[in-house]
Design a protein around this nucleic acid. Structure first.
Lengths: 214, 214, 214, 214
DNA sequence: AATGAATGAGATTTCATTCAT
DNA sequence: CATGAATGAAATCTCATTCAT
């Protein structure tokens, strides 16, 4: 399992105390929110899919919005790490080339986005129009990406060695993330392609490596 | 005005026959949909902001959803062009370098996204969960990007001249669009930056040019 | 019409702008609140009795509680006058004896309580447990009973002439009001009596006159 | 302890068999019913304040209404006595003057109303809208006030001696009770006063004595 | 065409009561 | 006995849509 997946698993396991009904409710909520969007999902829908009475939903979550937050909580906790963390320890040898850096990053994050597809979709829909949540999200993101994050350190080292273009770290991350999101987004809208996913992944790495080489 | 802007203006001007009330209604709808999302906007909100009775809204648009489509129509008509069209005629001399190509593309598209920010936001929110609209959008997009579009032709020429990496056109467009969307998205979430917008735009062009050079 | 009734009528007529549906809704609410109490009355009950859709109720009153306040508003506005006002002008000749004073007061107020029985009952039930409303009520009451009210002046004159016991005005009013409320309350609980209402009214006046004579 | 207090204590002590949990439940119910009213108090509130599971409440009382009745039972049993009983034995010498009569009555009943303030408030709220309970209450009241009650006998004696006005007993009691209730009600609504409670009590006695003297 | 009051279907939420543990 | 999760019926409230004026 990749590092980010690992983080997420831990975050989810903090829910170890959830009863089985609660898990069913969260599961159904996630699925329906991802499918139809939060607003168009009724609590009746959720209760039905969870195999639970509607009152039971409200016993566990005071409001529908609270249920949404419960669904998003683990993701909200982990997403900033997606941008900031880059644990070199999980790689056998230290990162010495941009190629290695990008390759590890892409593989790790892509798998995460792929596996947690539903959560990400729900979060995206929410961030689009919910100003408060967006602000909160950005703040936690900023606090994580600060100077001393692993990723910043690795990038700074590579910059110092002339192996990465000397642009601000946040811009480099912006380019990287955009490209990753584009990759996943493309799958989402189910555009056909003459290439396999693996081939596209390789080209994506190549694109990023070239684009970020000085 | 950039070519895409030009298209959009024409598209909008087809509304020339709209009464002023209709324009007010569309304007209010757009603003509110962009602000709170389609589902959370009530027709009462719209009528109030448009300074019109609720019944009047329904006189012009049979349902709320129809109003949404009316708001999105010009964008839906134009967006595929954003991906496919690349009018070399608007440039003094024909495109001979990747640098020129990317620079024109970026300038044109960025300004469009910037100016039509609200429409794009509403469309994004809608595409996220509305499968039908998404399918329709993708289809019109595919039909436009096909072999004979201006952009495809230009890219093919550059590829043939060894000035662009030999990847499928759709992948090149994916990388380009992702990067542009990342640029605009960054403004949307209002992340602070030590660079000016102009500087970021230059680096974005540089990133794309390097990334797409063979 | 007695003075207090007159006030109330005026207060109600400020509602002249109410549509007929609104009046039906208020009427039904008042009746049901008085019959079963506010909490036990459902908005479905109200809509049914008013011959109106449930949504219509909410079109006019944002919440059920707001409807209650609308029902109580004219009474809340008028009640303090019940305690404070004593318009000698409505009596042919000026009040010169305690007997006259009490008699006028009793007749006036009893009729009001009798006619506006439902409103008073609803208000009583609300004041019992609604601390906020109670405080508001008391404040408006205090502000009205202050030194310069007609009633205070009349009482002070009678005190100065040795025609009324020299107790604080508020205590005299307390005794009077209690006795009146007891009179009405007795009717409310439908206790049988060997006397006619007229006889009881006379004795009530006699009791007050004696009790308040120095 | 005054006679009425004594009665009440005995009535309460019939609950001697109650487990401590039951007592907690009754206690919490009483407090909450008095504070927010019966309808606005949820069984969850009660369970929480009693420090007991919600199921436990229902183990002891089949329905919420039964719980209300349990709370009111001792008061319902005693209230008629408040109106009817007047135990001369608790006074050293027999009552010979109206002054003595009223003074004893006032002191006794006022303290009771004061101490059992919560119960009375809950009962009042209930009698206001619950027709059945009201009827039951009145019936038990009538059956007690009948010809041979202590109070009736004492009053008849005083009337015969020309020491009390010759009005029907029930009217005399009405005036007395109203005045007492007004006294307590005034404390309830927390009207400020320039007099001490003792002074007001004295004036209340004086008012009643004068009002009831032939 | 325009209005805005009225509608009713459906959404969210509450809560007395039951029941398996 | 005690618990507290689960229930479901009913309450409050929202809102897209209709319609008489």
């Amino acid at each position: 399992m990749t590092p980010i997946q690992e983080f997420f698993k831990q975050e989810m396991s903090r829910r170890g105390d959830l009863t089985s009904k609660q898990k069913q409710i969260l599961e159904a909520s996630l699925t329906l929110f991802a499918e139809k969007g939060f607003e168009k999902t009724s609590t009746a829908d959720i209760a039905a899919m969870a195999g639970v009475a509607e009152g039971t939903v409200y016993r566990h979550y005071k409001t529908k919005r609270e249920l949404l937050l419960a669904v998003l909580a683990p993701l909200m906790a982990v997403m900033p790490n997606m941008v900031a963390e880059f644990d070199e320890n999980t790689v056998r040898k230290p990162i010495t080339t941009l190629q290695e850096f990008v390759q590890n990053l892409v593989r790790d994050r892509l798998e995460f986005l792929d596996v947690n597809y539903k959560e990400v979709k729900v979060l995206a829909g929410e961030l689009l129009f919910n100003t408060d949540l967006r602000r909160e999200f950005i703040n936690s993101l900023l606090s994580k990406t600060e100077v001393f994050s692993d990723l910043t350190k690795t990038l700074d080292r590579l910059k110092a060695e002339g192996k990465v273009v000397d642009w601000p770290t946040d811009l480099i991350l912006q380019f990287t993330l955009s490209t990753l999101i584009g990759f996943v987004g493309r799958q989402f809208i189910e555009l056909p392609s003459e290439l396999t996913k693996d081939q596209r992944e390789k080209m994506t790495v190549a694109f990023l490596v070239k684009g970020l080489t000085p």
